[in-house]
Nucleic acid binder design. Sequence first.
DNA 1: GCCAACGTTGGC
DNA 2: GCCAACGTTGGC
Length: 142
Amino acid sequence: MMAHWLFKSEPSTWSWQQQKQRGAAGEEWDGVRNYQARNNMRAMKQGDRGFFYHSQDGKEIVGIVEVCAEAHPDSTTDDPRWECVDIRAVADMPKPVTLEAIKQNPKLADMVLVNNSRLSVQPVADDEWAEICRMGGLDRVP
DNA sequence: GCCAACGTTGGC
DNA sequence: GCCAACGTTGGC
């Protein structure tokens, strides 16, 4: 069973544009220094899909990504506690889904994004995934 | 820019 | 092992 995730990034640090420019090679999702977020990355499998969310500037889901390398040591630190996955851009959200719209949708009331806004890598339930894809104008759930 | 929420650190 | 102090994130 394919799990779904959400990756949060400040566009001033790492934007969807930059992610897309990396193409199929993808990019290491490094710099995470939070155990919950790391544990979520450890649980990811090759091919799992996720949302790419712009925090602070934008506050909206702008794209779909795919896990292209499972958890491995974070190259930005020598501390062996920190691991990360690699992700690659798969598709744009035809209509970015804003945090505001998510908060207004009762079906999404239990989303981690709503209830634990500080967690930077988080799981997304299958029904939440489908609902947001629908809101984002994707005619097929990827 | 403020501040609430949360996570981490370190003294005891 | 508890908890106060501190630092960071991110919405507003």
